[in-house]
Structure formats: C-alpha cells, structure tokens
Design a protein around this nucleic acid. Sequence first.
RNA 1: GGCCCGUUGGUCAAAAGGUUAAGACACCGCCCUUUCACGGCGGUAAUAUGGGUUCGAUUCCCGUACGGGUCACCA
Length: 498
Amino acid sequence: MDFFKEMEDRIPKGKVRTRFAPSPTGYMHVGNLRTALYTWLIARRNGGTFILRIEDTDQGRLVEGAVDVIYKTMAECGLDHDEGPDVGGPVGPYVQSQRRELFGKYARLLVEKGGAYYCFCQKDEEEAEHDEEIGKQVKKHVCACRDLPLSEALARAEAGEPCVIRQRIPHEGTTTFHDASFGDITVENKELEDQVLLKSDGLPTYNFANVVDDHLMGITHVVRGSEYLSSAPKYNLLYQSFGWEVPTYVHCSPVMRDAQHKMSKRHGDPSYEDLIREGYLTEAVLNYVALLGWSPKGEMADREFFTLQELAEVFDISGISKSPAIFDIAKLRWMNAEYMKKLSPEAFYAKAEPVLRTCIHDPSIDLRKVAALVQSRCEILSDLPARVDFIDRLPEYDPALYVHKKSKTTLENSLDSLQAALPVLQKLDNWTNEGLYEVLVALAGEKGVKNSVILWPLRVAVSGKESTPGGATELCALLGKQESLARIEAGIALLSGK
RNA sequence: GGCCCGUUGGUCAAAAGGUUAAGACACCGCCCUUUCACGGCGGUAAUAUGGGUUCGAUUCCCGUACGGGUCACCA
C-alpha cells in the first residue's frame, strides 16, 4: 500500500499517549520542567505511554550536548520515557531532523488536498520587517502564489525554484479551538496568516512538525506553553485538511519571575540545573514546580507534599491554572528545607558530606556529627559552608555578640562567666555534650544565674558567630577539649581588652 | 496597534450562586529553649473596577483598568 497508509498503520490506538518535545537548547527551564512533569503525569495517571521527541528543526540553534542534558534531567527527575531517540519505539525516528522527508511528503499531500500551496516569494522583506519593532499593524503575508494553478506550481518547484509551502487558510468564517483548561477559543479566519509549513531548506516549521508528528505518533494529549495558544486555531484547520482527529490540548501559562517577566535564563533566573547546583533537592524542586500552576482538588486542596508517585495518582488536568504563576524562591527554600529534614541522617550525610569536606579540613572533626547538627538548620545544601565555617577557624568577631538582652547578659558578666567556666572545663574529663551540660548547669546553679548567662557567652567564644548549628555544649563537644579551651581563652582575652 | 488570554491577601492558591472567603510561604507577635534556628500557638493581610442578571454574586454577562501572550522560512 502507499506510504501514507503505512504511516497510519503504525500509529498505536486506544491508549493515552503523551509527549515531551523539547528543542535542545542546553538546559532545562523551570517552565519546561513543569511541562515535562505534567505531560509525564498525564501518561502515568492514565496508564499511558510517555514519549520523548527532540524538536531540532532549527538548524541555526543547534547546541552541542544539549540532548544529553535532556536525558540526564529527565532521568534525574524520574520522568522516564517509554519511547524516544535512545530507546526506540514503533513510531520513530524520534528526532525531527531525521524525519525530514516525511514532512516534505505530508506537506505535498496537503497541497494536493488543497490545504496548502507553494509560495515562491522571497523572504527578505518580511524578515527585515520583523526586525523592526513589532508595534504598528503587521501585515499578513498575502501573495498571488496562493492562486497559482497546481500544475504550474508543481512544475516550478520541481525545476528547483526556491519555495516554501504555506497553509491555505480560508478568508471567511471563524475557527474554534478547544483547550482543556482555557475552553473554547474562537477567532476570525481573516486574522490568521497563511503560515509557512515547510521552509525553503525543506525542514518543517514548528507548527507543522508538531501537528504531523503528534498525529503520526498517536499523541492524545498535548501539554505546552500558552505562548502557542494563539497559533492553535490554525492547527484545527490543519487537522481538518488532513482529516485527522485533534488531540486534547492543554496550554499552561508561563512561570514568571515577577508580575511582568517570564523566568528567563538571560535575566539570571535559575534553570533546573542551576537550582540543583545551588543545592536544592530534585524532589523538592519537582514538588514545588508541580504546585506552580496546578493544585489538587477537593479535600486534598490544602496538601502540599507529594512524591512523584503520589502526583501520578492524583494529577488531574482540571487542576491546572490559567493564570501565570510567579516563581517564589522563598517558598522553594522552605520546601527544600522540609525535604532536607525528612531525609534520614544517612541520606542527609551522603548529600552534605562532599560540601562539608570542602570547608572543614580539620581531620579530628567528625563530619557525621556536624551533619547531624546542621540538618535541621539549613534550607539548601549551599547554605552549609557559611554555617560551619567557624569550625576550621574561629572567625574574628564583634564583642557586642556577647550582649544578650533576653538573658540580661552583658559584656561584664560574659567575661565573668567565661572565667568561671574555664577552670571547670579544664578539669572536665567527660568531654561530651552531656558531660559539658551537666557541669555548666551546675556552675550556673552555684552562681545563682540562669543557664544562659553561662552558656551564651560560651557559645559566642567558641564560634564567634551570631547563629550556630547547635548550642554551646554541642559545639564544645564537637571541637574537642583543646580547641574549645583555646577559644574560650581567646574570648577572655578579647573581653578583658587584651 | 490588531487578535487571544488572564485578574482572590506580598507570593502559590481553595471555594465551580448562599462559606465567619480555606490552606501554605513570607511577615509580625507570643511560648518553649542552651543564643539563633528547630518546634508549638496566634495575628496582620484578598475577591482589580463600574454596571447589569439574580432573593442572593468571588462564582454568570457587558464595559473599564491593569497584566500576559501573539502577530518569523524561532521554537
């Protein structure tokens, strides 16, 4: 049978099939990640198939190694695909540049069906116009090629005359596009342009490749950014001309940096990779991103924590929001902190150890103990160095740290406390958190002062910091007797003006 | 500028004609405490705006404002 029939026969039927179709730019936007996630969730929720397709039809924008970034990110996030360039599948190839001939054939098929026509106009003037600020009324491309007799057009094209194939859009009437979250969108056909389907280099434009591939790959649900919403009605016409069924479209509003700007790499907004590099956990990022533009329904509406599996059980298209969402790094930090706290001590140590090793060089320090102290006090991994930097070396600090209003600790009684504590500690053999605490509380009792009058100055002396990953006794235990005593002596010297 | 879309506290958002308009982050306060943090408790704060429809509008309709998207042989 003919080529087109064969292609039709390859299309799997009757199951939900979704696809993530990034163009390889070298990194994963937060918005892209969200799209990938929603797409994957729809497939998994419905026992469907998730496909990875690479859209590399723009020859000018190829980035070395970009596809690997995509594989790596998807794998890291647990968004496994069932079909794709690396794993194959029944409707491949899954890289658009490898489907070149196919698009040509479908474009010509469409010409025959009357839904498209050859256009021999040169592109220069149009392009030049686009460079100019788009502000005034933009004129649609209108030319005589549309009315060329098919035989003549075919002959010229065959003779090698440069040309593109454009979609033939009716001048009259309206087209209604249905989106699962935006509902029906109706536009006048006269607003629509005869867009280019097949470029003069023989490769398809995004809009054409999308429609053809989604159909040929049996895609049932398309999730994509709302920037494509306004070109969507043209898709209906395309599907109609081909006689194909329109899949369910779900457009998602952008992830914003602030009320008026999308997140953008160019303006320094973090990509997924950046966030991971900064010490966010993949699970936390996914969880946060899932909730940026989607929320669970009903009695689950106030739930915030979801594993990927849990999301796959409850995710529903109807929960997707229509309005743009601002990416709030403060909330991500909070969520990340929650994930860090939930980690087992071993799991946390595994993540923290490499970071701790770069900033704590004293071999006598037990990094496991440091990790245990710091686990509940850092929101992201990269907070770690600043929290533990005092361990290697006592920083210079302002004596004003010794003043504490709440416990009425002053410079004077801080000096007194340190001087009183020093001999007690020198005699102490049981140099553990418990041992230290016992002896120091006893000292406070003897002197008839609150525990904090003793412990506060001690903590300052030993850390030189305003805030630390533990109390005075914990820090002393960690640093060891010799180092602790040396720091206390230094504190006494500082306070006594020496 | 044309066309399309959106608008609940600072942020994410629930509530699909009748609610004291949830919850979370952030912020503030209190408590606990070996400072801060952690934890516990509490608080401030919202339906952009004007008209309709309705016994009743956050919810439905229209206008206005503001914001976003789009108007390429880029995706």
